[in-house]
């Protein structure tokens, strides 16, 4: 028998529910963020610390933390930033970064150019075959990449040998492939952003003497800038993360980060510290950009799924 004063009142139940949901949210946040925390932490650790039998979950011991509170300059001596210095010599990380940047940014520019035109056509015009084309755009997202990779590899080899146009292990080859893969998504996302810009804007521009194309470039595109930026970030990330085509069509001098980073783990040794340092360098700008510009990105992603 529970005494009355311990029985939960309405507001007590409310408090308990709040506590429980706060706890659940805390667990989820821990689950979501721990690997990222672990990456940063490991990047500041020596090999011995990383492979220790019982690695510490905290960056410092309590004594070290107490010292650091008294004298913050101790922090600098505690950080092992060795990995950030050795990784450049041990692996061609710099080349990987440059290659990834070239491939992903050129892809982004092309995909946005093509995607803006297509997305605008989808948003503003009715034309026969619109449903078919839209279905084909979405359909491309369901094709297993391997089905395209095998014939494309043969095609690229054939073109290289008969027409003497190098395509495998070149920037233009992989950029062309990536642009095509990201264009359907770019069209789809940009269409949503163009939909939210009222038609009256272009009509006004047309009255002022703009041609149809000028109205698009000078009036509509600047207004859609946040959406274009969000789409651009999505395309950039897709190109940055791609490994299936890159592992076959972009080796050698054009090896991107996504492929190169795997070489930090060799048959005999795994250079986890260096790998995590390089990963932190790659991830930090992306996370910061996302945190700054997340609103249009999140809207662009969810729009299509909810609106239908």
């Amino acid at each position: 028998m529970i005494p009355d004063e311990f029985r939960l009142t309405e507001s007590g139940r409310e408090t308990l529910f709040n506590l429980l949901s706060k706890g659940a949210l805390g667990c989820l946040l821990l689950y979501a963020l721990f690997p990222i925390y672990w990456m940063i932490l490991s990047s500041f650790r020596t090999r011995a610390e990383i492979t220790a039998a019982e690695p510490s979950v905290l960056p410092f011991t309590l004594d070290e933390a107490a010292d650091a509170i008294q004298d913050p300059s101790v922090l600098l001596t505690l950080l092992e930033y060795e990995n950030y210095l050795t990784m450049w010599d041990r692996f061609p990380v710099f080349d990987y970064f440059v290659n990834s940047l070239i491939i992903a940014s050129v892809t982004t520019v092309f995909a946005l150019a093509v995607g803006c035109l297509g997305g605008y056509a989808f948003s503003r015009y009715r034309f026969p075959g619109k449903i078919g084309v839209g279905g084909a755009l979405l359909g491309t997202q369901m094709i297993p990449g391997i089905l395209i990779l095998l014939p494309m590899f043969l095609l690229f080899v054939w073109i290289q040998e008969t027409l003497a146009i190098p395509l495998i292990d070149t920037y233009h080859g992989i950029i062309f492939v990536y642009t095509t893969f990201t264009v359907p998504v770019a069209i789809w996302m940009l269409r949503g952003f163009f939909d939210s810009i009222p038609n009256a804007i272009e009509e006004a521009a047309r009255v002022d003497g703009c041609s149809r194309f000028q109205a698009l470039v000078r009036v509509v595109l600047p207004m859609a800038a946040p959406g274009i930026a969000a789409t651009g970030m999505f395309v950039f990330l897709t190109a940055f993360n791609e490994v299936l085509f890159a592992s076959v069509l972009a080796r050698g001098d054009v090896t991107p980060f996504a492929i190169g980073i795997q070489s930090f783990e060799t048959q005999t040794t795994a250079y986890w510290g260096e790998m995590m340092a390089a990963s932190t360098v790659a991830t930090a700008p992306i996370l910061i950009l996302f945190i700054l510009f997340q609103k249009p990105i999140v809207e662009g992603l969810t729009e299509g799924s909810v609106k239908q």
Binding site: T283, I286, F290
Partner: peptide, 18 residues
């Protein structure tokens, strides 16, 4: 909570591998 999805998956997968 969105960060696991935003962080490059090549990187996060290697973190998990470690």
């Amino acid at each position: 909570l969105l960060l696991p999805w935003v962080a490059p998956s090549v990187v996060t997968l290697l973190i998990w591998r470690m």
